[in-house]
Write a protein that binds this DNA or RNA. Structure first.
Ligand SMILES: [Zn+2]
Ligand SMILES: [Zn+2]
Ligand SMILES: [Zn+2]
Ligand SMILES: [Zn+2]
Lengths: 175, 175
DNA sequence: GGCATAATGCAATATTATAACATAACATAA
DNA sequence: TTATGTTATGTTATAATATTGCATTATGCC
């Protein structure tokens, strides 16, 4: 009776290269439209954030950036990438609504509605680390109503639900 | 038309001593019932977390603990309190559901339903730093439904809404 | 008291994030 | 085209948050 049509969690089989290229293309379009610059660094960071459907920490991005530069350098000689470099790029991407920050993990994940102002619900698997971004009109209405009742003016909303995704529950069942 | 009967945000006038003593008494009862120990340290940390209705960081608790000890010491000579001391006490209090962690602030706040297993919604004021803990059946149902649709087994829920409380909106309006 | 367990003390270190200032890249107008 | 202002990045240092590992002390039970 339970249905997971395509599943909000992507399978291990899906064409992830497509996820990445779509995200990069959308980001370029959004930035173009807004007259802001998706510089090579920012684009690289966005690509790294999209390297999987698992939220990635700033320092993991930093390490990956570093590795990329070593690969690109003619002889492997490169200066180290420093934290502010990464944090500034992440801040830019957050500001343009191209990524989300997962507060409970101090980590970042690509946004599936790039550029759109919206409040999302995240399902975060404690088993495999994957996260799925959902929208629920009912949920947002409930939050709006609760805030309105309290006379509270909403600025930002974070809804983060941790647990086990369908695959990881299956793995446990088998054991 | 908008109503804030007593207001989910406590006023500056309320009897906060009562908040604290109620919280400490409830905590003692909960721990008694469960056969776990609300040691002097844990009790002190709980009291510090309840010192205001603003989420407090672990290191602020640490500093306050330190100050308390200096006051209590006969001559002011005391050893420093180390981070693990505070984090362990906070972990205990979280485990007993006597406090909540606000993920978006890396901070902690007293629970208004001590000991009860529940998912709360927090309204967090960016103006004054106060936070209000609410329950919304509609909201929790919406989250449960979204998770169920995805075949996701919930373990923990964090709903954190940042914005401006009624008082802080007023302050802006006046300006 | 002797023993097991739980709690705390303590030192070191890991992880996450920001401040402050210098340089480089880019745009545009004299 | 150089001058100039602006935005982006580099660089160094440090702040803020959190954990690991082991030693010591307190507590409860026999
Ligand atoms: Zn993908
Ligand atoms: Zn999973
Ligand atoms: Zn109070
Ligand atoms: Zn306020």
């Amino acid at each position: 009776m339970s249905e997971t049509p395509d599943g909000v969690f992507v399978g291990s089989d899906h064409d992830h290269g497509n996820c990445v290229s779509t995200a990069l293309d959308s980001a370029a379009a959004v930035c173009q439209r807004r007259g802001v610059r998706l510089t090579p660094l920012r684009r690289q960071v966005l690509e790294l954030v999209w390297q999987s459907h698992q939220p990635i920490g700033a320092y993991a991005v930093l390490d990956a950036l570093q590795a990329n530069r070593r690969d690109d350098a003619p002889d492997g000689r490169t200066s180290a990438v420093a934290p502010p470099t990464v944090y500034r790029a992440l801040e830019f991407l957050l500001g343009q609504r191209l990524i989300h920050r997962i507060e409970s993990l101090n980590a970042y994940i690509g946004c599936v509605h790039p550029g759109a102002r919206h409040a999302a619900l995240f399902l975060i698997c404690n088993g495999c680390g994957s996260a799925a971004e959902l929208e629920s009109a009912t949920l947002l209405t409930a939050i709006d109503n609760a805030a309105a009742d309290a006379g509270f003016a909403i600025e930002r909303v974070a809804v983060e639900v941790a647990g086990q995704c369908p695959d990881c529950q299956g793995a446990v069942d088998v054991a």
